[in-house]
Design a protein around this nucleic acid. Structure first.
Lengths: 206, 206
DNA sequence: AAAAAAATACCCGCTAAGGGGTATTCTAAA
DNA sequence: TTTAGAATACCCCTTAGCGGGTATTTTTTT
């Protein structure tokens, strides 16, 4: 018997899943939530054995919720069900402990297959994401920047000047500017504001 | 008989709608598409009398598709079904000719009610959006900038320099910079890159 | 028609972000 | 241990975007 909990801020999608599963033998939906916190409450109350969760949700995202769930209830299997196909999203979700990852542009029948697989202790990955041995395959572009560069890029996205970044990281402003130059060269971008634009677009592209 | 076409890049959502409607008397789904262009093709081939469409989709967004549909087939009623609750999104969709607007975090049953209403020539608006006499109520913040300022802000978001904007709009660079200054004062923002950050956030926040 | 708002245009000064480049030290990988 | 990569740091110069301000013309509203 699969006891299933679903977290998804789009209620219409939950409704669709409920329609799909209402006549499915061996599956019982024990609770649904529209945000990450609601999911945790259901997990505490009902102890499902499978959780289907979106990533971007109000109050707490699916990555964080998965982390907390797997920590407290390692036997619960988590399936990510999300629009994000970026490697970074996949990586984070798998690192949080999810054993499956399905995209929303996939059919509901495939979602059902994934739920069954994950409930059986297996992994299940959407054909349109990159996964390699349980780890998301890092794209060439994603791996171009170093740890430090990514750290500085995030601060740039927050609108901090080089001086502010230097003070925050206890390094010289010249160092920050050098990182900027190196990143622009590596990413192949030029022009005023383009690094900031890149930083912001990357943030919203997960 | 309601002949329905659905455009939605998340196939799982289409599947849910199909499950909901398959036993509904008087409704026939004549086609589904995962992008705006596919929607137009279905409309040409099948001439549905109701279209349900998302906004953000590959190849052509729902606003543009709605415009084209209403121009060619004014008798087709369009219902927007989207995650965007911002006034601007509602405004644009209604101006394009949609007669209904439903959010995805609403239940599927309400989607059915909206489809029935819209098919009947009525309007139907999700309770969580602002609509006033068929026009989205424009928020105070949204109305702070003039037409021209918004035009320039959009070009800034594209990464264009003041010089490039000046050349494109056939005005002087000083004029562009003055618009920049005026916008920053009006929006209450300060600092290098902050206008660009605002422009980009506004873009992604619809 | 008058008043208000919007658009256009300009001056000055400052600085943050590029863009060209060099070099040394530290850390990780081979 | 050696090599390669990353991090740190600096110089020079240019330019684009602020930030302070002023003014005129055009368009819209009253």
């Amino acid at each position: 018997m699969i006891r299933l909990a679903i977290a998804e801020d789009h209620q219409s999608l939950i409704d669709g899943l409920e329609l799909l599963l209402k006549y499915e033998d061996g599956i019982e939906i024990v609770g649904t939530a529209n945000d990450g916190e609601g999911l945790l409450r259901i997990v505490q109350k009902k102890e499902p054995n499978v959780v289907v969760t979106d990533i971007r949700m109000p109050k707490m995202d699916g990555i964080q919720a998965t982390r907390l769930i797997k920590k407290e209830y390692p036997h619960i299997n988590v399936l990510a069900f999300t629009m994000f196909d970026q490697d970074e999203a996949v990586t984070q979700m798998l690192e949080a402990g999810a054993s499956g990852y399905i995209l929303k542009n996939t059919s509901l029948n495939e979602v059902l297959q994934a739920i069954l697989a994950v409930a059986d202790g297996k992994t299940y990955y959407d054909g349109n994401i990159n996964v390699n041995g349980g780890e998301a395959k890092v794209s060439a572009k994603k791996g171009l920047l170093t740890r430090r560069q990514k750290e500085i890029l995030a601060l740039i996205a927050q609108g901090k000047t080089s001086r502010e970044i230097a003070e925050e990281l206890f390094i010289g402003i010249h160092t920050v500017d050098t990182h900027r130059k190196n990143m622009m060269r590596i990413l192949g971008i030029k022009g005023k504001g383009e690094l900031l634009r890149y930083a912001l677009e990357k943030k919203y592209n997960f």
